[in-house]
Design a protein around this nucleic acid. Structure first.
Length: 497
RNA sequence: GCGGGUGUAGUGUAGCCUGGUAUCACUUGAGCUUGCCAAGCUCAUAACCCGGGUUCAAAUCCCGGCGCCCGCACCA
């Protein structure tokens, strides 16, 4: 990824400070000095995250026939991850130079020296081979220490026997593949079939960095779409004509800095299959149309052969330009995983994964839409937090953790009583916040900073005619509405997707 | 994991070199005030990342750990 660049000065700190002060995000076990690679969500962060997840679910899962949300365990048995390739590919044998201290991947050293793949070799075998070939540190010609196994997966000892026979899942996707046969039956053997999981995944990152961008425990929202690779009609409910006006913003591998806006047809002319293009359009539409990201901050970045997993036939990252992180950073990916995963599980479990459809028998191919939820939440804060004379978090209203503030203009003359009454009525349906403290301007400012799109103020006129002012966050414009009409008014303003 | 920087109320900071338990601002809470955009006044709450060591005395000096930021490496 060409993520080079320096963060805007103070931008990261501004967002982290906002997060901590107001209740979005802070380090796990903060009172013990934090815990590298782990972050907790406060009340606002949890609300924002939940609403992003709801939006994702509606846009990608509930909008299609035969797409469903499932939920699977975070602990998986050894064999399932052996079959998926994670046991071998997620485990690196590190060789450390005794002289300069530099670390290298043992299999890489052997491959460079012999030209043959050394993947999956045990540390002892690699040690023996390094010895045999008399390999020295490429940096300083120093000797290597005994190699060590570094596993990106967290091993677990399940049961009283206490053997390392399980791992915390490194991606949610495997949960879907393991349940493919059951769901295919339960959903009456229909293809295409989409199965989504939103849940936690775990990777023992060597150096977690940049807040919630790279964590050791993180949340994924992943959709696995199973389809017939030979069926041009997939998926039947999608049509490229839905995206006619959309210029799909793409940066190809050979010229990563050059973002082109291409039509779906132009992308297909470049050799991408139509189902892949359709999902690119759908993803971009999610960000730029639904959530309102500025198009220039959005792009697909093609990953080259050496950057993507070997089984991903086509792989574009979805990247958002984040000032706090120094440029375009990955928030999601679209991966054409072919039949790699189902075939792997068929081989290891001896369960047939092939299906009959369209008069043929085949193992379905998988298109995976994979989103990092925490990264997306961070990108919302980065993209929509404006800090000038006013500090405003210009969140899309449907994502705002607090949807409306309800204030009495003054703390006297019966205004608080009526305001409380309005608040009590609205809170049944909307996420509301009542506040009577400080000046009205200060209360507006507090709401602006946490992204509350609307504030309702009860004044003296309200007592006479049952109307209130509704103040809009970004413009500060006010309209006067009847108290009885508020639910309808707010519904129209807030339930926009 | 390596190198550089760094850690003081909720947030941002002064103090650290030249040891004597801490500055300022904003925030937060209470009260007064306040007829619509962080106004004002009074009062209050609140901090030296953790653990050792040196010393009569450690935020300050030394050692170890942890966290954070930047670079390298890593991120099938």
């Amino acid at each position: 990824m060409s993520n080079r660049g320096i963060p805007l000065p103070g931008r990261y700190d501004d967002i982290m400070s906002l997060s901590v002060r107001k209740g979005f995000i802070w380090p796990t076990a903060d009172i013990y000095g934090g815990f590298g690679g782990f972050y907790d969500y406060g009340h606002l962060g949890a609300g924002l995250k939940r609403k992003w997840e709801d939006a994702w679910l509606r846009h990608f899962v509930k909008s299609e026939d035969n797409y469903y949300l499932v939920d699977t365990t975070t602990i998986l048995p050894y064999r399932s991850l052996k079959a998926s390739g994670h046991v071998d590919h997620f485990t690196d044998v590190m060789a450390k130079c005794s002289n300069c201290g530099e670390s290298f991947r043992g299999d890489q050293l052997l491959e460079d020296a012999t030209g043959a793949s050394a993947e999956g070799m045990s540390p002892d075998d690699i040690d023996a081979k390094l010895e045999e070939l008399r390999l020295k540190c490429p940096e300083c010609e120093g000797e290597f220490e005994a190699t060590e196994l570094f596993n990106m997966m967290f091993p677990l000892a399940v049961g009283p026997a206490g053997t390392d026979d399980a791992f915390l899942r490194p991606e949610t996707a495997q949960g879907v593949y393991l349940n493919f046969k059951r769901e295919f039956e339960a959903l009456r053997r229909r293809i295409p079939m989409g199965l989504a999981i939103m849940g936690r995944a775990f990777r023992n990152e060597i150096s977690p960095r940049q807040g919630t961008y790279r964590m050791r425990e993180f949340i994924q929202a992943e959709l696995q779409i199973f389809f017939d690779p030979e069926d041009e009609g997939f998926p039947s409910s999608m049509s490229l004509s839905d995206f006619d006006g959309l210029g799909v913003r793409v940066a190809f591998e050979e010229d990563r800095e050059n973002v082109q806006a291409l039509s779906c047809q132009e992308l297909m002319d470049k050799g991408l299959p139509w189902f892949y293009v359709a999902h690119m359009a759908k993803v971009q539409s999610f960000y730029t149309d639904l959530l309102g990201y500025p198009p220039e901050k959005f792009r697909f970045a093609e990953l080259g052969e050496d950057e993507r997993a070997f089984y991903n036939k086509i792989h574009f990252d979805i990247q958002i330009d984040m000032g706090s992180l120094g440029g375009f950073k990955e928030v999601a990916g679209i991966h054409y995983r072919t039949d790699h995963d189902l075939s792997g599980h068929e081989k290891e479990s001896h369960e047939k994964m092939s299906v009959s459809s369209g008069g043929r028998r085949f193992i379905p191919h998988v298109l995976e839409l994979s989103f990092g939820v925490d990264r997306n939440v961070w990108s919302l804060l980065d993209t929509f937090y404006k800090k000038n004379e006013r500090s405003i978090l210009k969140l899309p209203p449907p994502l705002a953790p607090i949807e409306a503030g309800v204030f009495p203009l003054l703390s006297k003359d019966g205004l608080p009583e009526l305001a409380r009454e309005v608040y009590t009525r609205l809170r049944k349906e909307f996420d509301c916040f009542y506040d009577a403290s400080g000046s009205i301007g200060k209360r507006y400012a507090r709401m602006d900073e946490i992204g509350t799109p609307y504030c309702i103020t009860i004044d003296h006129d309200s007592l006479k005619d049952n109307t209130v002012t509704v103040r809009e966050r970004d413009t500060t414009d006010q309209t006067r509405e009847g108290i009885d009409a508020l639910p309808d008014v707010l519904r129209k303003l807030l339930r926009t997707f």
